[in-house]
Amino acid sequence: MGRIAYVNGRYQRHADAAVHIEDRGYQLADAVYEVWSVFGGKLADAEGHFARLARSLGELRIPAPMSRAALTIVLREVLRRNQVREGLIYLQVSRGVAPRDHAFPDGDLSPSVVITAKSLDRAASEAKAAKGIAVITTPENRWGRCDIKTVGLLPNVLARQAARERGAGEALFVDEMGLVTEGASANAWILDGDGVLRTRDTQANILRGVTRRTLLDVIAEAGLKVEERPFTPEEIARAKEAFITGAGSLVLPVITIDGQPIGGGAPGPVAKRLRSLYIERAKQTAV
């Protein structure tokens, strides 16, 4: 069976799915998105993703295209039609279709909705986590509202491409003060020399990661010490451990930064434990 996408009320063959050429998401990045991890055919961290979607839509003044209950039904139907049990589901909502102009169009628009899903090889993901990834650093050059999950991701695209060309799995943005903000598609964490877990606070120019939020709860339940406090690339290099979090990466150990080994140059016990605890929590609470 071929892949199926949902576009503006219709389930279509993925290869045939399309939006209008004057869709504002396509022309102006006037759109938001969310990505859920899928475990056992269910949505992980569902509440956090729905809440962040509502916030992003509100910040851009895009009306919700449907109720949460209706959206949940559509998301589950896309998973069912694509037979996705383990994987990711992607949702994008744009302001809609209108003649190209930077200002909001006059009158009411119907938001455009696109949903796709894909399966992931969990065994391959676990093998990747067991090995760990390399990261590079890059200057922060994104706009000042990274707390809104918009589709305007060109700086992230260029950063991730730079990482790929250097054999790394992620790029970490570094601000004008020399502090790491976040990754191109993930939040950044370290276990510092004092044994304290640290991640940047969300008052900074970073996305309010849903996986990050859940992991903070997991950390508290595990009785580990955590501080929402920034760090430098040099502190990452000196850290006992480092890892990133996101819907796609879950909890993914980082073993080198700009070619320098972190800790023993292999995934550490805390990151591995937190990955296991997070996945267990995600499976138990998925809906």
Rank of each mutant, 00 (worst) to 15 (best):
V226M: 00
Q161H: 13
D217W: 10
G193E: 15
D194L: 03
T245M: 03
T232I: 02
A239D: 07
T138G: 06
C146K: 05
E221G: 08
R208H: 14
I206M: 09
A163V: 09
R208N: 13
A159G: 07
F173W: 07
T199H: 06
L191E: 04
G248N: 03
L179M: 09
L224A: 11
V210L: 02
A237G: 06
A184G: 13
T211Y: 06
E235T: 07
G195F: 01
A186E: 08
L158T: 11
E234G: 08
L179Y: 13
E221P: 03
R160T: 10
Q203K: 14
A222C: 13
T245D: 10
T138K: 02
L153S: 01
G193D: 10
A188L: 10
W143L: 04
A171F: 09
R238Y: 10
R198P: 07
L154I: 13
K149F: 13
E235G: 06
G183R: 01
L191W: 05
P233D: 03
G144M: 05
F231Q: 10
R238V: 02
T232L: 08
N141L: 03
T214K: 06
A237Y: 09
R238T: 10
A159I: 00
L207A: 12
E235V: 00
V174N: 05
T138D: 12
T214F: 04
R229V: 13
A247P: 01
D217Q: 12
N156P: 02
I148V: 15
R145P: 14
A239S: 15
E165Q: 12
R160W: 13
W189S: 12
L215N: 12
A168H: 04
I244A: 03
F231A: 08
I190Q: 05
R213G: 11
T232W: 12
R208Q: 14
D217F: 08
D201Q: 15
K225H: 08
G246M: 07
K225I: 10
G152D: 15
I148C: 07
E221F: 01
T232Q: 04
A242C: 00
L216Y: 04
N187P: 07
P230G: 10
V251S: 05
V174W: 04
N141D: 14
G169D: 07
K225T: 12
T199Y: 04
P139E: 03
V226R: 01
R238N: 11
P233I: 00
A162Q: 15
G195R: 00
L252M: 14
Q161R: 12
V196M: 02
Q203P: 11
D192M: 07
P155S: 02
E140S: 08
A242V: 02
A237V: 15
R229F: 05
R142M: 12
G152T: 09
L172T: 04
I244T: 03
A247G: 08
L215M: 08
Q161A: 08
V151E: 07
L207R: 05
L158N: 04
E176R: 14
T211V: 15
E234R: 06
I148Y: 11
A239V: 00
A168C: 14
E228Q: 15
V174D: 04
V157D: 06
R145E: 11
